[in-house]
């Protein structure tokens, strides 16, 4: 109990002092997880729509892959990206290993199936008659997609929250492809693991509190967005 108290005190002190390193770590956390989530939205939502609406051979198989991918362990994503980006790997010449870009790649792999899977479920859940109705009213293909996306926005925002939550909380991939390098690839989760292994539990608790607050803040903004326009 005493330790938790010390952690909260340390967290407040660190926040109050505006510690430059802490600010940098927090900003990098937002930047990496945010970029990975944005990329996964750009790819995942159209992909989810496609899989929900289109009918083609192998569709069910693809959906099963996406659904399985929703459980991708971050360390597996980290390992795959490591194998690709190591100097001995096929993309070693890009020199991306141990950079935030590598972390974004790995987190994108984690977030993409989450966003796609949720989007697919959300769009798929809409009444199929809605499509016919919209088309009957003379909407174009793109207008149809846009209306369906609007209709499914509760699920789609859940997809975004799920994707973001999946990447901001992972530590395995970030450690493997980022290397937890001070000032370059250290994020809140990897810093927390490191502080625990250094025996600095108070700093680790402080970092956890900041991370939880950050997750809540972003989720709150997205929830506001999601719940807006709901009938009271």
């Amino acid at each position: 109990m005493e330790m938790i108290g010390q952690g909260i005190v340390a967290a407040l002190k660190m926040l109050a002092s505006g510690d430059a390193e802490l600010v940098r770590v927090t900003l990098l956390t937002i930047r990496v997880a945010g970029t990975a989530t944005l990329l996964s939205i750009l790819v995942g939502i159209p992909l989810g729509c496609l899989l929900a609406l289109a009918r083609f051979r192998g569709r069910e198989f693809m959906i099963s892959l996406i659904n399985a991918g929703m459980g991708t362990p971050p360390v597996v994503a980290g390992l795959v990206v490591s194998l690709l980006l190591w100097r001995s790997g096929p993309f070693g010449y890009l020199k991306l290993m141990y950079t935030p870009t590598a972390m974004i790649f790995a987190q994108f792999i984690i977030a993409l199936p989450l966003v796609t899977g949720f989007a697919l479920a959300g769009i798929g859940q809409l009444n199929p008659k809605l499509q016919d109705q919209i088309l009957a009213l003379g909407a174009s293909r793109w207008q149809l997609y846009w209306l369906l996306i609007r209709e499914a926005r509760l699920s789609l925002l859940a997809a975004i929250i799920g994707g973001f939550g999946g990447v901001i909380s992972e530590v395995g991939a970030s450690t493997m492809v980022g290397g937890n390098i001070l000032g370059r690839t250290r994020v809140l989760t990897t810093a927390t693991v490191m502080e625990v292994s250094k025996g600095n539990f108070d700093i680790a608790i402080a970092l956890s509190i900041i991370l939880m607050f950050l997750i809540w803040l972003v989720t709150y903004a997205l929830t506001r967005l999601q719940q807006r326009g709901r009938p009271q």
Partner: peptide, 9 residues
Amino acid sequence: CSGQQASTD
């Protein structure tokens, strides 16, 4: 955030 990051990637 990315603007403030003085990174050398």
